[in-house]
């Protein structure tokens, strides 16, 4: 393992401290691994979070027009309820708090417990669960679809609605509407190394890619010989289009890097995905290419489509000064 770290046990706290040093508009609470907005305003508060290792998620999305607080757990592990409660308290400005949770068993249990405990202190709380990964079958029996890069669109749109003065009910509604209209699909070419484990949890042979791998290295749907950018774009996009009908609609497109893939390749992938969408009469309203929801140094990418209507478009286009999502 070659990493720019000190002690593997300190990566989360030192990362957040470094993040805070570069961002004057946020406050960092080291004992809770919480990053929150310095500027307070009477509006619905938005909290998200989860395991670390997905940077810039979630701290990078704290800012005017997006999240009010981000709560970090250990690498790839949900934060405990004590931390989440701190995030809720910092985000609460008297108009209620919406929790944006990615669909993982650990995240849901910890956020639900935090919600129960914070409600005892008279904070009004609602939550939504993001499940955009079409690699996993939707299921009511098992945990079902994972929350991946599409989560960032939920932060953005719910954040804009809250900033515009939406009530808790309205912000939750638009967040849920966004979730219902997002689909993502990813692929990976090489593993990541958890700092406190020190070696890769799996290996992928030189010419092999894994379709549908999760952002924690969870196995995907298929290991297959790697194709060119055009082929990869086709596999990912088709999988999304098979899951939901986007034909004729306007979309926001995100081509997300998993941490170890250069922007050059992400732009090439974007070019290919955009060509496919054009050919299918899917109109791209806005494109985001970059590392938004990563998996440490894993190489690979995901594609996310969000079907837009007028309201979602307006909220997506509203300003945000979050450090990792300037609009």
């Amino acid at each position: 393992m070659k990493k720019i770290i000190n002690n593997p046990n300190d990566v989360v706290s030192e990362m957040l401290e470094g993040f805070a040093r570069g961002n004057p508009k946020i406050i960092y609470f080291p004992e809770f691994a919480v990053i929150s907005r310095k500027e307070k305003k009477r509006k619905v508060g938005l909290v998200s979070g989860g395991g670390s290792g997905h940077e810039p998620a979630h701290a990078g999305y704290v800012g005017k027009g997006m999240l009010d607080a981000a709560v970090a757990g250990n690498v790839f592990s949900s934060p405990g309820p004590d931390r989440i409660i701190k995030g809720i308290k910092e985000a609460n400005n008297g108009e209620g708090v919406l929790l944006i949770i990615k669909n993982y068993a650990g995240d849901i249990m910890n956020f639900e417990l935090a919600k129960e405990l914070a409600e005892m202190e008279d904070v009004q709380i609602e939550y939504v669960i993001v499940k955009d990964d079409v690699a996993v079958p939707d299921s009511t029996y098992s945990t079902g679809r994972r929350g991946i890069a599409g989560t960032v669109f939920v932060h953005k749109i719910a954040g804009a609605k809250a900033e515009a003065g939406g009530t808790l009910e309205e912000v939750k509604k638009v967040a849920q509407q966004t979730i219902d209209n997002i689909r993502s699909m990813g692929m990976s070419m090489s593993p990541c190394i958890l700092p406190n484990v020190g070696k890769p949890a799996f290996e992928l042979a030189e010419n092999i890619m894994e379709i549908g791998m999760g952002i924690h290295g969870e196995p995907g749907v298929e290991k297959t010989e790697i194709g060119n950018a055009s082929k990869i774009a086709e596999v990912l996009t088709n999988r999304i289009l098979e899951d939901m009908d986007f034909i004729g609609s306007e979309v926001a497109l995100m081509v997300n890097g998993l941490g170890g893939t250069p922007l050059m390749e992400l732009y090439i992938l974007n070019n290919e995905v955009s060509k496919i969408l054009d050919s299918k009469n899917i109109k791209i309203h806005r494109t985001f290419v970059g590392n938004y929801m990563t998996s440490l140094e894993m190489s690979g990418a995901s594609v996310t489509l969000l079907k837009l209507n007028d309201e979602l478009k307006e909220l997506l286009d509203a300003p945000s000064d979050a450090p990792s999502f300037h609009v």
Binding site: S77, S78, G80, G106, N110
Partner: peptide, 18 residues
């Protein structure tokens, strides 16, 4: 319980903690 929830985190932390 409170310590396990906070330090272990994830599913194991909240399940043991709870």
């Amino acid at each position: 319980g409170m310590t396990m929830m906070s330090v272990i985190g994830g599913s194991a932390g909240v399940l043991y903690g709870g």
